[in-house]
Amino acid sequence: MKNFEFIKAPDVKAALALLDKEKDHAYLVAGSTNAMVDIRAGKVNDRTLIGIRDIDALSGIKFSRGKITIGAGTTISEIANSALLAKKAPALFQAANDFADPTTRNSATIGGNIANASPAADTAPPLLALKAEVIIAKKGSKRRVPMEDFFLGVNKTVLEKDELILAVEFSANPHSAFYKVGLRNAMAISVVTAAASVRKDRDGKITDVAIALGSVAPKPVRAYNAEKAVLGKKLDDKVIADLMKAVAKDISPIDDVRASAEYRKDVAPVIVKRVLCKSCGICANEGGTK
């Protein structure tokens, strides 16, 4: 039998106090788009649901001195419709627009998306590529965790039972891009996703790069080998070929109901190439190789 309690947290302070009190029993619910599915399936039970949907302080997109801060309770819709993000973090903007469907985006939050830690979480690769930090609070303290340290495995993160994600923060980078391969154009859990962000010097040499992939490992991953293949270089056919070759070392995909590991291995390098070229302002042929 399903067995739950529900308490609504009016503000962050109350939420942290409840987390502190309930510890193992606590289960935070914001947009509830994942929570309801897990509750129905019996994956979650015997918990106190802490409602945080109404905490205004957790929501909003701020830009200040080159830094973008997005409250954990910000809906994917707000991100998908943000003119600021379209300009300053196109990777995340694009991921939000490819996320589920417009109706689900009205509820789903960015904090919930990363806290759920699905290997296919659409916002994870862009946040990894933008080298975001996760701002986490618990009663009496706060900490910052780099995105690349945040995920531990399938549905596992560094979050402690009494912790709450307040926000994600990253430096704006217009030279970033995202690409999703799904089995449908809407409401599709990704088969493979990739995101990249770059900085170049005047000669076009890549001085800083981050590449990340989703659905190719137990958790969203940075593609360090791929990054190494392009760092300090100008993009040309040879560098792109090296980049694509390197991707294989960064991923460990599996067969599932959506695609085979082989397909993921085939497609990951292609979309890494595309997001990198797009980040560099080169028009990678999105349609293929003519």
């Binding site: 914001a30 309801m36 509820s107």
Partner: peptide, 18 residues
């Protein structure tokens, strides 16, 4: 819900109080 389309099956009812 408050003027925005949401899927009620994946919306926790008590979260909508008020």
């Amino acid at each position: 819900l408050d003027g925005k389309a949401v899927k009620s099956c994946i919306t926790l009812a008590h979260n909508c109080a008020g």
